[in-house]
């Protein structure tokens, strides 16, 4: 049967809604981007996101291979499937970008984030904070008579949950590294 009998290729979007997503679900994707570790490469990646109106939920970057001068950028982004595809294609165009991998679709992956929480309080609240920290397998990395600084490592959701619990117990400050992610199993990028 002729393929031409199937009507397809139409788009349901109009020009006024190029960035709209009313007919598509917003998805959250974790991208691993291997780049040449040269000056300005991070600015190129960030400039792409701001210039084209894409979202960045978190972004981490560090050199991972000293000999090859390769850095790995892990970006958590959100968008419709079409926007996510565009983000990957646009990243791929950047000259010092070697590879772009979508860990969300390329099989199972692990995501971890490190965070530090400063919790101030005395008496019952202080004991409760320490007890909850134990439940979350948080490390105490600094303590004074009125403060604890906890280190929590885990998925972003776990860190969100810990922050919620600490808030009524005197959470005064927090810092998060953003997500680092790897695919599971023996599959490797590069």
């Amino acid at each position: 049967m002729s393929a031409l009998k199937i009507k397809k290729g139409t788009t349901s979007k109009s020009a006024y809604n190029l960035r709209s997503n009313y007919d598509d679900l917003i998805e959250r994707h974790t991208l691993a981007v291997l780049v040449a570790n040269e000056p300005g490469v991070l600015a190129r990646v960030i400039g792409l996101f701001s210039g084209r109106g894409y979202n960045i939920e978190s972004l981490t970057v560090a050199e991972v291979e000293q000999d090859g001068h390769t850095s790995r950028i892990t970006i958590v982004t959100t968008g419709t499937p079409q926007v996510i595809e565009q983000i990957k294609a646009q990243l791929g165009r950047i000259v010092p970008v070697y590879e772009v991998h979508d860990l969300t679709v390329e099989g199972p992956s692990v995501e971890r984030e490190l965070s530090l929480f400063k919790v101030s309080g005395t008496g019952e609240k202080r004991v409760e904070a320490l007890r909850l920290a134990d439940v979350f397998r948080a490390n105490v990395v600094d303590s004074t008579l009125t403060n604890f600084t906890f280190e929590v490592v885990g998925s972003p959701e776990k860190i969100d949950a810990f922050a919620e619990l600490m808030r009524p117990l005197g959470l005064s400050e927090m810092a998060r590294t953003g997500v680092a992610a790897l695919s599971r199993g023996y599959l490797k990028i590069k």
């Binding site: 393929a3 031409l4 199937i6 009507k7 397809k8 290729g9 139409t10 788009t11 349901s12 979007k13 109009s14 020009a15 190029l18």
Partner: peptide, 16 residues
């Protein structure tokens, strides 16, 4: 966009 005009009415019946 100078080519397509209104996107939801752009060549609705074609394979592209």
């Amino acid at each position: 966009d100078r080519i397509t005009g209104r996107l939801d009415a752009f060549s609705p019946g074609s394979i592209k």
